[in-house]
């Protein structure tokens, strides 16, 4: 349409200037908890250095979907995947039987709903993943732990008590510690499963701020029940219902002008 174009500074969100590059691509993804089919032939592309939010009512399969990426479902017998999730640029299928789930988890990391630090010191929590990978040099560990804590916006608050127990931190700090722990191993994709649902608004704001910062380095996929949060932090939003992907689009558009009636009903609170 021949509308007058206004300076892009008034747009709601700066669009990524770089062309979109796929980081992971799920195609024809179905997932079974035993006989129950929890995901039904999902197709979704997560773009590199973007935040993609997954929204939908409880039980729609958001978390199930997220957990497919790092093969968490492998831990329980009877679970089964169909279809594929390809990780780029090397184009490997994360779900292929030949792919070691441990290898997968090395490249992806996950932050859960409740902060779950290990019963160890702040330092050891962040160093853990590095140690598992065989990092022995104390100097390297110190450097990487500091970098991860800085990236998680926690360094200034904990630098003088790195050897205290992580449980002494507040809920919001514990969650940022978990993010630091997830960042320490330089993941390519970070999965957030409702990272702020147990936090107060201030701690929530700092995690959201962090997510906005982190996307310069990593690709982020976040499950959230809070639609305002999805609208605030994400570049793309996917609406899921009953194990299906109903709508996927730019967050800017999806919350103002969704294409699908079901999406519209859900985000306007008409879902019944």
């Amino acid at each position: 349409m021949a509308t007058v174009s206004v300076a892009s500074s008034v747009e709601s969100r700066p669009q990524p200037s770089a062309p979109l590059v796929p980081k992971v691509k799920a195609s024809g993804l179905s997932f079974y908890y035993g006989a129950f089919r929890a995901l039904k032939e999902l197709d979704l592309v997560v773009h590199e250095n973007c935040v993609t939010a997954l929204i939908g009512p409880s039980g729609c399969g958001k978390s199930t979907f997220l957990r497919c990426f790092n093969r968490m479902h492998d831990l329980y017998p009877g679970n089964r995947y169909e279809g594929e999730i390809r990780l780029y640029p090397d184009d490997i299928n994360l779900l292929a039987p030949g792919v070691d789930p441990i290898e997968v988890r090395m490249r992806l990391s996950m932050v859960f709903q409740k902060p779950n630090p290990f019963p160890k010191s702040i330092f050891e929590n962040v160093a853990y993943g590095l140690r598992v990978r065989g990092e022995r040099s104390g100097r390297t560990l110190e450097g990487k732990v500091e970098a991860a804590l800085r990236d998680a916006a926690l360094w200034s608050e904990v630098k003088d008590r790195l050897h205290q127990l992580a449980f002494n931190l507040s809920g919001g700090q514990q969650q940022r510690l978990c993010i630091a722990r997830a960042l320490a191993t330089d993941p390519e994709l970070m999965l957030f499963d409702e990272p702020t649902s147990s936090l107060d608004p201030i701690a929530t704001a700092s995690i959201e701020e962090l997510i906005a910062d982190l996307k310069k380095k990593v690709t982020i996929l976040i499950v959230t029940h809070n639609m305002q949060q999805a609208a605030r932090v994400s570049d793309f939003t996917a609406y899921m219902y009953l194990g299906q992907l109903i709508e996927f689009g730019r967050t800017d558009e999806l919350f103002i002008k969704p294409k699908n009636k079901q999406t519209e009903d859900y985000i306007t609170g008409r879902f019944g």
Binding site: M227, F255, I256, K257, P258, T263, E264, I267, T268
Partner: peptide, 10 residues
Amino acid sequence: RRQPAATDLR
């Protein structure tokens, strides 16, 4: 109070 979205926001 409601943080309306989509058609409600419009």
